[in-house]
Amino acid sequence: MGVDTSLDPNVPVKDIHGNYYQWGRINVAANADTPSGPISGWNLTNEPNNSWNTGTENVPIKNTANDPCPSGFRVPTITEWQALANNNTVTKVGTFGSGSFVSAVVFSCGTNKLTLPMAGARMQTTGVLSNRGTQAFYWSSTPFPNSAIAAYNMFIIGNPNPPLVLSSDNGMRTDGYPIRCISE
């Protein structure tokens, strides 16, 4: 969401970083051009569990009114993110370093590729940008069990030292992360 679709999606540049969203919200919280400091009026209210999904991991999930993905698409579940990580070859491309727009990880299976820029994250209390160029956080639609404050995300450390790490984690719902939509 918020990327320049006229560009090659497999070449990490600023214009494929996309927008940052707070979990469960439809509105853009920041984009790649937003200054890295605190954002005036950063929203500190948590959205309810089913803001981005209409079911559970085992029931087909549909786009909701709060889902920023276009019609026919939705925010993936954490299970779908984990399947992507488990069933593809993962490589690093670009130059990794603080503030870099040209670092990414690439998930590939045959000729199919998904490139995820190291877009960093917008922090929960102020919207300050952190870890661009070295880490990536991408929202899932799955709420963290038994918690009103956290939701699952896919977390990627791409810095060459230490080696690439992929995991799912819980992020504060008021954090700002990019979204990659999948077909319903």
Rank of each mutant, 00 (worst) to 15 (best):
P48W: 05
A83N: 13
D4I: 14
G99L: 13
F144I: 07
K113Q: 11
N49A: 15
V93Y: 07
G55P: 01
T142I: 06
Y152C: 02
Y20P: 03
N112I: 08
T89L: 09
W52R: 08
N10M: 04
Y20A: 01
T115I: 05
N87I: 08
P48D: 05
N58P: 04
A29K: 08
T142K: 01
I179F: 01
V59F: 12
G120K: 04
N10V: 04
T126S: 15
T95Q: 13
G72F: 06
M1D: 11
N46F: 08
N58R: 14
S147C: 10
T34M: 07
E47T: 15
C181Q: 03
V128G: 09
V105D: 08
N10E: 04
L166V: 06
V102S: 15
P143M: 12
V13A: 08
T54L: 06
P162D: 09
A29R: 10
G18P: 09
N146E: 13
A85G: 10
I156R: 05
Q82K: 14
P160L: 08
N66G: 04
W52Y: 14
A32V: 06
P48S: 05
A121R: 14
P163I: 01
P60I: 08
A30I: 05
T111W: 02
A65G: 15
G72D: 06
V13S: 07
G127E: 09
S100M: 09
D33M: 01
G176L: 06
T134F: 02
P163D: 04
N66I: 03
N31G: 10
Y21S: 01
D15N: 10
T142L: 01
E57F: 10
S130R: 14
V28Y: 04
P162A: 07
A104R: 07
S167G: 11
L129E: 15
N50K: 03
F73E: 09
N31H: 10
P48E: 05
S103R: 04
P76K: 10
P9R: 09
F73L: 08
R74G: 00
G99C: 13
K62C: 01
I179H: 01
Y20F: 15
D175E: 14
T64Q: 07
S40N: 07
R173G: 02
D33T: 13
R173N: 02
G24T: 01
G120A: 03
F144Q: 14
D4M: 12
A32K: 08
G99V: 14
V128E: 13
P35A: 09
P60F: 12
L129V: 05
E80F: 02
P68S: 14
I39Q: 13
T45K: 12
M154C: 00
G18Q: 13
G110H: 11
L166I: 12
N112D: 11
A83R: 13
G97T: 03
L84T: 12
G2N: 12
R132S: 10
G171A: 14
V11T: 15
N112Y: 09
N86E: 08
A83V: 11
V3A: 11
T126W: 05
I156Y: 05
T45R: 10
R173V: 02
F96A: 10
G37Q: 00
V105S: 09
N87Q: 12
I78M: 06
N53Q: 15
I182D: 02
N87E: 10
Y21P: 04
S100T: 07
S168D: 04
K14F: 03
F96R: 10
G171R: 05
Y20D: 00
K113V: 00
N58C: 12
T111K: 00
Y177K: 03
T77S: 15
K113S: 00
I157P: 04
